[in-house]
């Protein structure tokens, strides 16, 4: 009970810290999801394609990114790239834009690898007979993909993609290591001024949970809508 009161007072007092953090986390997650999905789609197309070199490239990329920690990827982009002369530009009016861009890039590069696998497996899970039936009628492979395979693959892809979105929101807490003022970073600020680390962390956890829970409910809603349409 006492702990709960501590949390409430902490939250009311440092409310501006937390809300600023939430805003930045949401911006980060939105851009990551968007860019990650584009990148993932591209990689999935490469991996499913007939051209061996691009298939190989996509494979190496996916395996490597999924096999190394996100934290290292983030640090590599923000601290490592400037050492070889590549820096993220500091835009006017947006504070810390270089940090943000590095963070979004690293997160997108990471998420893209996972999204690629989600899309690939979603497409491959569609029964081969569907493709064979379409081809036997005279449909070209592109038409078959568009009319028969993709509409069915979406239903496999969407739930897993929803999970990935939730993961992105949670994992975005890692970018605080390069000084992006996301929810985790702001929570640390609150801790360093109040020394109430447990209460602050609990508040942050609840906020993260609300964000992920709302996201997963939204995805579930979209899934149901889709199921109504075609089943």
């Amino acid at each position: 009970m006492e702990f709960l009161e501590k949390m409430v007072t902490l939250f009311t007092k440092y409310n501006s810290f937390f809300s600023a953090g939430v805003a930045n986390t949401i911006i980060l997650a939105l851009f990551t999801v968007l860019l990650g999905t584009v990148l993932g789609t591209l990689l999935a197309i490469m991996k499913l394609g007939k051209f061996a070199p691009t298939r190989w490239l996509a494979n190496v990329y996916i395996e490597f990114i999924r096999g190394t920690p996100l934290m290292i990827q983030v640090m590599f982009l923000f601290y490592g790239l400037p050492m070889v002369g590549i820096t993220f530009p500091s835009l006017p009016f947006i504070s810390n834009s270089d940090r943000f861009m590095a963070g979004i890039c690293a997160m997108s590069i990471n998420s893209g690898a996972y999204v690629a696998e989600i899309i690939r497996s979603g497409i491959q899970a569609v029964d081969k007979g569907q493709t064979e039936a379409a081809r036997s009628l005279g449909f070209k492979s592109g038409q078959t993909m568009r009319m028969v395979v993709l509409p069915q693959a979406i239903k496999n892809i969407l739930p897993a993609l929803g999970n990935e979105f939730v993961t992105v929101i949670k994992e975005s807490s890692i970018v605080s290591v390069i000084g992006i003022a996301d929810l985790m970073y702001q929570t640390n600020s609150v801790i360093s001024t109040t020394y109430r680390s447990l209460a602050a962390l609990a508040v942050a956890a609840i906020i993260y949970f609300i964000m992920t829970f709302v996201t997963s409910r939204l995805i579930a809603f979209a899934e149901r809508k889709m199921a109504n349409g075609t089943r």
Binding site: A133, G138, T230
Partner: peptide
């Protein structure tokens, strides 16, 4: 693709397009 249009095929597992109605299955091609 041109020749397949003239060769109908019926499969053991039916392979109707699950995302289309019966009518759409027939009229699509």
């Amino acid at each position: 693709d041109l020749h397949r249009q003239k060769i109908g095929m019926v499969f053991q597992q039916f392979n109707l397009f699950n995302n289309m109605t019966v009518l759409k299955n027939i009229t699509a091609a």
